[in-house]
Design a protein around this nucleic acid. Structure first.
Lengths: 197, 197
DNA sequence: CCAAGAATCTTGACAATGTCTAAATCGGTG
DNA sequence: CACCGATTTAGACATTGTCAAGATTCTTGG
């Protein structure tokens, strides 16, 4: 950055590329992301990243994996202390929406449909880890008798889908971050209560 | 209209560009979409589309508007005949997921965050029209005493978010279209029943 | 009817980008 | 210490979005 620490050629590229790529994504969006631009910012030649990322798609794949990993960590941290099921769901959704608000471009990369076959497995693993939480919350809730019976996986999908939908609305700008906090609570309350009378 | 378009130079470009752009989006995805490629396919010069679309972003904006309009029509058609609330919700969700399955790239364009200020209003209108249905369904359900009381807007957001989340999962490939049909029914059932016990 | 004037389309040019190839440079290992 | 693989560089190429004139067609007012 400001520091001209010109190690000869080498440094920990790949990590540096990933870091800078996420920055660009957050600050300027997806179209502003160019391999040459990143290389320029890092002070390496334009083809240097190709040693670590075969393709631009490979970079996107790596960004998606890193994104899901970080999302998982964020949720782990958010759910470190637990309360009632409703509270926990709100906490979970809130953490997710904060992530979506702070990284809309990254989120759309994560849910892009271009992942290579090989990266797909890695991504699927990270997704499973990040999305295991609601199912776990529901399983616990069932054990405490707070939650209706049924396959926690199935019920978890509903919760996950609702929150993911909200995240999409926030990420696409149809809902402002301010509105999202209220909506989130409404959605969780509605989910808990159910629609039928 | 069955008339072949190739008049002199002119024809109904703009419409032709939009049509071809949707085709490319459906058949080859977003990165395969290039203004020059479309112009080539239509047999016009590479700069011809610029008369109708200032930017590539302007084309994306127009695609998003057209997409939401068509989505609204699809839902109108699907909900022409009505049944029980549960059936109607399944019908609605099914129509949405079919759309998402058939046009994943278009869907991601529709929910991209790059819409220009001017197109934003047009899009918002189309979105409101397309997404008014679940709220209407719930209002009717409330009138019949099938649905819990409360602001239909608020409850509608939950339904919409859940379905949108499923659509995202399908569109990104995490869920196959075959799985989505079962999930959809599970999600609607869970929504109706509620989580609390 | 016809002459502007606007809309549409073409041609040419430019910078930027992703990607490929060949050569140079570094680090570690035998 | 020499060698080999990993890393980086330099150069080249096709493609793309965009801009600036210029040509062509359509429209419209006098």
């Amino acid at each position: 950055m400001t520091e001209t620490m010109t190690r000869y050629h080498h440094g920990d590229l790949r990590a540096a590329v990933l870091r800078r790529a996420e920055e660009v994504l957050r600050e300027s969006g997806t179209d502003a992301l160019s391999l040459r631009g990143i290389a320029r910012d890092l002070g390496v030649s334009h083809a240097a990243p190709s040693a670590h990322f075969r393709d631009k798609n490979a970079l996107f794949d790596a960004l998606a994996v890193a994104g899901f990993r970080r999302l998982g960590e964020v949720m782990d941290a958010a759910l470190a202390t637990r309360g009632s099921l409703t509270d926990d769901l709100v906490t979970f959704a809130s953490a997710y929406l904060d992530f979506a608000t702070d990284n809309p471009a990254l989120l759309s990369v994560m849910f892009a449909r271009k992942h290579s076959e090989t990266a797909g497995a890695e991504i699927a693993e990270a997704v499973a880890a990040a999305f295991a939480h609601p199912t776990a919350l529901l399983t616990d809730g069932q054990a405490r008798g707070e939650v209706v019976d049924g396959d926690p996986e199935v019920i978890g999908v509903t919760v996950l889908a609702a929150i993911q939908g909200l995240a999409t609305f926030v990420g696409s700008g149809f809902v402002t971050p301010e509105q999202s906090q209220r909506m989130l609570e409404d959605v969780v309350a509605t989910l808990m209560r159910g629609l039928a009378r």
